[in-house]
Nucleic acid binder design. Structure first.
Lengths: 229, 229
DNA sequence: GCCAGATAAATAATCGATTTTTTTAATATA
DNA sequence: TATATTAAAAAAATCGATTATTTATCTGGC
């Protein structure tokens, strides 16, 4: 009777996967930390089997490291890896954006404007940070969505998660957020104008600026608390 | 006492993962096929828990599709997806090769020559196809190894597996293999000469030629048997 | 004959307990 | 004191059985 088809009726395994993925990206666990499976079982109130299945998936996805017979640990953070992630993200996202501008139709243009607007609105209400992050991710996803390559999109999503492990380390900075928001707006404008060259250049700048923020947070992070655990 | 440290002492889960990954890439299962977990359990003589953990990892890796409450299935093959895989592979591998040529040292040069030689030798002994495939993968891995990006390497490996699902569909063709082998040799030469532009161009051609082979096999595949199962 | 709903069989997901391996602690030895 | 050996504890991996969900089959009403 329900006219809405559930895309994939959730299971305990898929739920804990989603939760852990979010928590890992948000730095809920300390970098390098060994995960105590029994503790997780208690904390998240979930059985061992679905938990282990989720951990296995997260390891394959790159948000955990798995070592046979000695469980799972959170990957460490490093300047070098941040550079790698940012550089690779730059290459792939820039490539995808170019294709998206070439292929995106009117529906895409509408989606872009909507995504940008939603993000801007969320920015005003400062209290809902989670929501802003969600919309921010969604905005960047929309930018490259019609690039035509399922695999490119998949990799970009993965890199975003990795990047955000660094970017979300510190406290929120409204000033920088405003600058980035301005760029979001300009990115949409250039995309609508189909100005590939300028759009790529701006996306490049945008990612570099985000990189600066992420690097700063990572650098300061070591001196402060080990993690917000 | 043992002077060789085991990199990660195998578990039932990791073993069945490796086996299934290989079998999936080799087309042991029909595209689109629904996996009967109980049957797999018997076939591979493995428990349910390690099996499910492996399937979860393979789904996260992209060699299986997971739908909640209805298990796992082998992704279908399509012309469109092959195009995507080949194109993305071209972009990423070309990028990585350029970086590898820029950063690769003398040890890399030696490894390249060794990998090429091993592959050529395996080519003579026609019976050991598995071994050739292993060395071929290894050769391409070596080509891009010193590119400096862990993530790029990871994605390239993933794309290779996806590409090989198509390339390994049909019977082996010694004639084309010889052509590709010739290109392997030239790729090494150009890499040693640090001729970035020519090297990229040749890698481009190489992947395109492989793509032609893969496409041909995919096209013929539908008309023949459903799969070598 | 064909469809809706109920029932049965098959399959997926999960639980609880057991086995195996690693890590920690304790003890003995040089 | 440092190192090696053994024993105990903890943790990871796996098993066997149970529960929940889907898929296939059957039945009666139209």
């Amino acid at each position: 009777m329900n006219q809405y088809i559930q895309p994939s009726a959730s299971t305990a395994s898929s739920r804990i996967y989603d939760t852990l993925r979010k928590d890992l990206v948000n730095g809920r666990f300390a970098a390098g930390e060994k995960l105590a499976i029994n503790a997780l079982k208690e904390q998240y109130q979930v059985g061992l089997s679905p938990l282990r299945e989720a951990l296995n998936k997260l390891a394959a996805y790159g948000l955990l490291l798995q070592e046979n017979q000695r469980g799972f640990r959170v990957p460490t953070l490093s300047h070098r890896e941040l550079d790698d992630i940012a550089q690779t993200r730059l290459s792939l996202e820039s490539m995808a954006f170019e294709q998206a501008i070439a292929h995106g139709d009117a529906a895409w243009e509408a989606e872009l404007l909507a995504a940008e607007h939603r993000l801007k609105c969320a920015d005003m209400t400062l209290d809902k940070d989670d929501e802003w992050e969600r919309l921010h991710t969604q905005f960047h996803r929309t930018l490259v969505a019609p690039c035509g390559s399922v695999w490119l999109l998949r990799f970009i999503e993965q890199l975003h998660d990795q990047f955000d492990r660094y970017r979300r380390l510190g406290p929120k900075m409204p000033v920088i957020r405003q600058e980035l928001d301005q760029q979001h707006h300009e990115l949409v404008e250039l995309a609508l104008k189909r100005d590939v060259k300028a759009a790529r250049k701006l996306l490049d700048e945008h990612i570099r600026k985000s990189y600066d923020v992420a690097l700063q947070r990572f650098t300061q992070h070591g001196e402060g608390a080990p993690n917000q655990c």
